[in-house]
């Protein structure tokens, strides 16, 4: 922000090299600071889950993921039924698939499954 404002005379074309130059200087400065700092203390053992306030946040987060999957499946099935007119079957099958998607969301959010990438 500051770097751009101090050189108002430069055009837009000159901004990209100056941006990368700035980031290079920042990286070098960061490396120097890290080198002069004492080594970080070893991290304490695994966090206990007994009275952690962020456990509540985790619970909210995971439940929201699961509920959202089911809701999205139900919504999709309901819309398909409304548009195509296929009785309750779209809603039923999409709700079941929504449960699957909710479980998938849950596993991804908790880190038990690999994130949504095709890897190719």
């Amino acid at each position: 922000m500051n770097g751009n404002d101090t050189q108002p005379a430069r055009g837009n074309a000159a901004e990209a090299p100056s941006g990368s130059d700035l980031s290079r200087r920042l990286e070098r400065l960061g490396a120097e600071i890290d080198a002069s700092r004492p080594a970080a203390e070893p991290s304490p053992g695994p966090a206990s889950f007994t009275s952690d306030p962020s456990a509540l946040g985790l619970a909210f987060r995971l439940s929201a993921e699961f509920v959202a999957g089911v809701l999205a499946g139900g919504l999709l099935g309901w819309v398909i039924d409304r548009v195509v007119g296929t009785g309750p079957w779209g809603l039923i099958s999409c709700l079941i698939l929504g449960f699957c998607a909710g479980m998938l969301n849950l596993l991804r959010a908790s880190g038990a499954a690999k994130p949504a990438r095709s890897g190719g």
Binding site: A101, G102, N105
Partner: peptide, 16 residues
């Protein structure tokens, strides 16, 4: 399932 999972993203984002 992936499509439903994608549709569920704005829902979970807002719901949370």
């Amino acid at each position: 399932i992936e499509v439903i999972s994608f549709v569920s993203r704005p829902i979970s984002l807002s719901l949370r």
